[in-house]
Structures are given as C-alpha cells and as structure tokens.
C-alpha cells in the first residue's frame, strides 16, 4: 500500500478505465507511426518537386524529358506524374489532329486529374491525426470521470471516509486524462505542420501546371 507505483494503479484499475487506457495507447502508437510515414512521404515529395523543377527549367527539350521519364520503371509521383500525363495527352491529341485550343485544353485537363490524384496521396490519413488530436482528450476524460465515479461509489458504504481511501482511485482515474493528452498533443502539432506543408505543395503543383500549360500553348501554335 505504501509503495503506490503507476504500474500497480493501472493493473488494479476498473475494466472501463483499463479499456480507455488501452484505446489511448493504441491511438498514440498508431498516430506516431503515421506521423513517421507521412513525414517521410512529404519530405520525399518536396525533394522530388525541387529536383524536377530544376530539370524542367534547365532548358531541356520537353520530348527528351518525357522519354527519360517513360523509360524509368519505378512509379512516378508528384510533378513528374503531372508532367508525364500532361505531355502524353498533348502528344496524343495532336496526333488525333484536334484543334489547337482543344489540344491545350485536353492536356490541361489531364494534368488537373493527375494533380488531384497527387494531392489525395499527400492528404491520406491526415484525418486520423486530426481525430486523435481532437478526440483523445475526451476519451481520457471519460476514463477519468468513470474512475472517479467508481471510487466515490465505493465510498458510499463507509462510515468514516479518509483521503487515503479515495486518493488511489482518483490518481488511477487521472492517468487516463494524462494519457489522452499525451496522445493528443503530438497529433495536433503534427497535423498542423503537415497541413501547412501540403498546402504549400499544392500551390507549387498548381503553379507548375499553369506554367506548363502556357508552354504547351505556345508549342501548339507553332507549326507541326
């Protein structure tokens, strides 16, 4: 009794409180893992965009760039994917002898589709982080309220109540809140950081798309 360790408290907690703690622990573990994955993906996208923009504006022939990309076996993503889809569509519709403005428009459309796919890839699983960030304090609070309720209920039949009888119960219940906050804080921070970075990436993609459309328009009007 005199050595009250957290471990003992958790083990001796009532079943709902233990369940809440388990859920929170799981949420925390998953959110951290997700953060790691997401962080890696965003870093990779940023590096790719920088690299591709460098290549694109280096003055290389667009057909050569396209050939280089299509030779590569691995999956293309980010700006590369947008460029590839747009240019392929442009070449195809030119072969089909469409009107100049129609050619540019179809290429633009293809790039838009590609871009929205990329954005979706960037944004997947972000809602999980947001949910963990906003809900887990409530879950923890629920565990705490339940635990305190239990400990007061146990007090009802006793003639002389002492602080020592309630204290372990409340302490045990408060662990749930602590765990909820522990899960929520990193999730919220990560969510905010990721959304701002993804927004920046989207703007980057959009800018590239418009610029590339301009270039295609110029090419479409030049003689074939």
């Amino acid at each position: 009794m005199n050595d009250v360790s957290i471990f003992q408290l958790i083990i001796s907690a009532s079943l709902p409180v233990q369940l809440v703690m388990l859920i929170l622990l799981g949420a925390s573990i998953f959110s951290w893992a997700l953060m790691y994955v997401k962080w890696g993906y965003i870093r990779q996208s940023q590096a790719e965009a920088k690299n591709f923009e460098g290549r694109f504006w280096s003055g290389i022939n667009l057909s050569d760039l396209f050939a280089q990309l299509s030779v590569r076996q691995e999956r293309r993503f980010g700006l590369e994917a947008i460029f590839e889809n747009g240019f392929r569509e442009f070449a195809r519709s030119r072969k089909a002898d469409l009107d100049n403005s129609e050619v540019v428009r179809s290429a633009h459309r293809a790039m838009k589709v590609s871009m929205s796919r990329e954005i979706e890839l960037l944004e997947t699983n972000l809602p999980f982080l947001a949910t963990v960030g906003s809900v887990s304090p409530y879950v923890g609070l629920f565990g705490t309220v339940w635990g305190i309720m239990e400990s007061f209920r146990a007090l009802a039949g006793v003639q002389q109540a002492t602080l020592a009888m309630v204290a372990p119960g409340i302490s045990e219940a408060l662990i749930a809140t602590a765990m909820g906050l522990f899960a929520a804080i990193p999730a919220v921070v990560a969510y905010n950081k990721f959304t701002s970075e993804i927004d920046a990436m989207i703007i980057r993609y959009e800018n590239f798309l418009e610029e590339f459309t301009g270039i295609l328009q110029r090419q479409a009007h030049s003689p074939r």
């Binding site: 573990i29 998953f30 951290w32 893992a33 997700l34 790691y36 994955v37 890696g40």
Partner: peptide, 8 residues
C-alpha cells in the same frame, strides 16, 4: 511500413 510501427 512495418518499420514506422516498430519505431513508434
């Protein structure tokens, strides 16, 4: 990404 889960 089992590595991420492990790290977490």
């Amino acid at each position: 990404h089992p590595k991420a889960l492990l790290i977490s």
